[in-house]
């Protein structure tokens, strides 16, 4: 497999693979999305389609699960989310192969991240941007993908960042089909886990503490065969962090007291844990978040983190121009197993 030119005329901000890894979509500041497909004969990526998708830089995109067809969501600094569907009858490279399904324009600031929920939650997507709001949309009728409903809008950052300052927002869904609906978001230097409570509302359920700079990337690990969850963050403070998230059903009183103490640190740690997470029987699906690993091997900013299909290998990239692959040992200690180095 050889390196290949995307043909974008400006910076590439994000790439996303389809479920089977046979297609990759790229987005760029040139306002275009491009889709490449893998030629299995030559083992090379070939351009399938390219189209102007937004009126400003496109910074994030994602593929929906294959159960729903070939759908891509994209977000841009033009404050819109757009949904695209592949039309198999249109010719490739005709500019018409990907048809716009709809535009969602509830955001009041540039958008930074968009991700489809895992398929067992239905056709749902979350988007996060500079206005500090996390928005969830649902396609309520599976046969009508042009109609999307804003089902949740949550303020994750009380004061949106000043436009002249660097900012970063990321989100990642818990991919486990056996877990409650959960997602983790990072807004500036705060990372919070949200989960749906019994009333069907998304509420903060835990914080990933310890970040002292912008969180550049966040990734919830697939938890195949694990009874706990892992979340990795890459931060401007130079640290790759891995958090272990476990669920325990404790008496609600203790949790509330603990969270009341936490409320003193709202500004620093993010929104308070919502008491509506407590179930009617007085117990609470309490998330215990523990920092299990912290590495500064990149010796500078950590730009991206990403897990493999089964959540057994974590990758990180950083200022040192290296991709580091991390693997947990039998005792659950993450160690760098190999490194891929770019030119310095």
């Amino acid at each position: 497999m050889k390196p290949f030119l995307t043909g974008h005329s400006d910076l590439v901000h994000d790439i996303s693979y389809d479920f089977y890894g046979r297609r990759v979509a790229t987005c760029s500041s040139d306002q275009h999305i491009k889709v490449f497909k893998l030629d299995k004969e030559t083992n090379e990526w070939e351009l399938s389609e390219s189209w102007k998708a937004h009126d400003s830089s496109i910074v994030s995109l994602d593929w929906a699960a294959p159960e729903f067809g070939r759908i891509i969501a994209s977000v841009s600094y033009d404050k819109t989310i757009k949904l695209w569907e592949e039309d198999p009858d249109a010719l490739e490279l005709s500019g018409k192969r990907w048809q716009k399904l709809c535009t969602l324009n509830d955001a009041t600031g540039p958008l930074f991240s968009v991700k489809f929920a895992p398929s067992h939650l239905g056709l749902r997507l979350a988007a996060l941007g500079n206005d500090g709001k996390l928005r969830l949309y649902d396609a309520l009728e599976s046969s009508d993908l042009r109609s999307w409903t804003l089902t949740s809008e949550i303020t994750v950052l009380n004061t949106p960042p000043a436009s002249h300052l660097q900012s970063d927002f990321c989100l990642s869904w818990c991919p486990s089909r056996f877990s409650t609906e959960r997602l983790v978001i990072s807004a500036m230097d705060q990372a919070t886990i949200y989960q749906r409570n019994k009333q069907g509302k998304l509420v903060p359920a835990g914080h990933l503490k310890g970040h002292t700079g912008l969180i550049r990337s966040i990734a919830w690990a697939p938890s195949v065969g694990r009874w706990y969850q892992l979340i990795a963050t890459g931060c401007k403070d130079g640290k790759l962090r891995i958090f272990k998230v476990t669920e325990s059903r404790n008496n609600g009183t203790n949790i509330i007291n603990e969270e009341n103490d936490n409320n003193a640190n709202i500004e620093r740690d993010g929104p308070p844990i919502d008491s509506s997470a407590i179930d009617a029987d007085g117990s609470v699906a309490n998330l215990h978040v523990e920092l299990i690993s912290e590495h500064s091997d990149h010796q500078g900013e950590v730009w991206s983190v990403s897990w493999n299909l089964t959540g057994t290998i974590l990758s990180s990239t950083g200022d040192d121009g290296k991709i580091r692959l991390w693997k947990a040992s039998y005792s659950n200690e993450f160690r760098c197993m190999s490194v891929v180095q770019a030119a310095r």
């Binding site: 390196p3 996303s16 890894g21 010796q299 991206s304 990403s306 990239t317 490194v339 180095q341 770019a342």
Partner: peptide, 30 residues
């Protein structure tokens, strides 16, 4: 830094300024 084995990118090297990487579900296609 880590004493782990290190290789270069095959054929051509990206610049190392803001390197990003995403795992593909088929690892070798990342």
């Amino acid at each position: 830094v880590s004493n782990a084995p290190m290789v270069n990118f095959p054929i051509e090297q990206p610049s190392a300024k803001e390197l990003r990487f995403k795992y593909n579900n088929v690892s070798s296609r990342s």
